[in-house]
Design a protein around this nucleic acid. Structure first.
Length: 237
DNA sequence: AACATTCACAACCGCGCAGTG
DNA sequence: CCACTGCGCGGTTGTGAATGT
């Protein structure tokens, strides 16, 4: 199929985004939206390819993106959802409000996978969490924030850290916040915070006939498994 | 204190799918 | 119906930071 060369390589910038680029992108999207990623960089005056802009926006600059460490509940949910859905990070992300597929993928590959592989309760990471960062939401436009690639420390707005974070990696002693789960599980894939960008469930729409269940069915099973998982993890408590 | 190793994360790359002319 | 374009997804890599020796 005709695939346009992702970025016409000439003259386009790569690598970490600067604060100015972030600001430009955010400002442009706030003003004009992102109906056409390919044309966006030109319109915004960015020397980036559309793909890069899209990635930056989705994974980092979106107003509803949560930054910071994953809570125990989130990690647990990822593990369970991964067990059901496999590497369908976007689907998993759709059920974790404020989290992106890229972020979830990273977390999975960095510690959740290892934790599972070790699969022993004492399989604690050798090191402590390096960045004890509060879970926050990145405001849409944050000119004075260190938005560049190293900006994992959006530690300013601790007001949004209401999740019950009493989780430690090697013990399953975390408390499930019922309201959190009821909210999370109530989220329809299509109505998740992804600004309508979420495609219909590929398990259904993508012609993956091996899984011919409907969205509703999937949600049912997700709910069921999550609750079961909660119950499994809780008794230890 | 310096060096080596490991880890975490942002970003890139390529592929497949869906929409459109 | 076919070809083309753009978008989204998943896998992988590069880099800086933290930790260990």
């Amino acid at each position: 199929m005709g695939r346009s060369p992702c970025c016409e390589k000439l003259g386009l910038k790569r690598g970490p985004w600067t604060a100015e680029e972030d600001m430009t992108l955010v400002a442009h999207i706030e003003r004009h939206g992102h109906s056409n990623w390919r044309a966006l960089p030109k319109q915004a005056g960015l020397l980036r390819c559309g793909k890069s802009c899209r990635l930056r926006w989705i994974n980092y600059l979106r107003p509803d993106v949560k930054r910071g460490n994953f809570t125990g509940e989130e990690e647990d949910a990822i593990i369970q959802l991964h067990g059901m859905l496999g590497n369908r990070w976007s689907l998993i992300a759709a059920r974790l409000p404020g989290r992106t597929d890229n972020e979830i993928k990273n977390v999975w590959h960095t510690h959740l996978k290892k934790r599972l592989e070790a699969s022993s309760p004492s399989a604690a990471p050798k090191r402590k969490a390096r960045k004890p960062v509060a879970v926050t939401t990145v405001p849409a436009a944050l000119p004075e924030q260190p938005i560049s690639s190293c900006a994992t420390d959006y530690s300013m707005a601790s007001s949004t850290t209401e999740t019950t974070e009493s989780f430690s990696p090697d013990s399953h002693e975390f408390q499930i916040d019922d309201s959190f789960w009821s909210e999370t599980l109530a989220i329809e894939v299509d109505s998740s915070g992804r600004s309508g960008m979420v495609a219909p469930d590929p398990l259904v729409a993508g012609g993956a006939n091996s899984m011919s269940s409907s969205n509703a069915d999937m949600d049912f099973w997700v709910t069921l498994f999550m609750q079961a998982g909660d119950m499994e993890n809780s008794p230890q408590i």
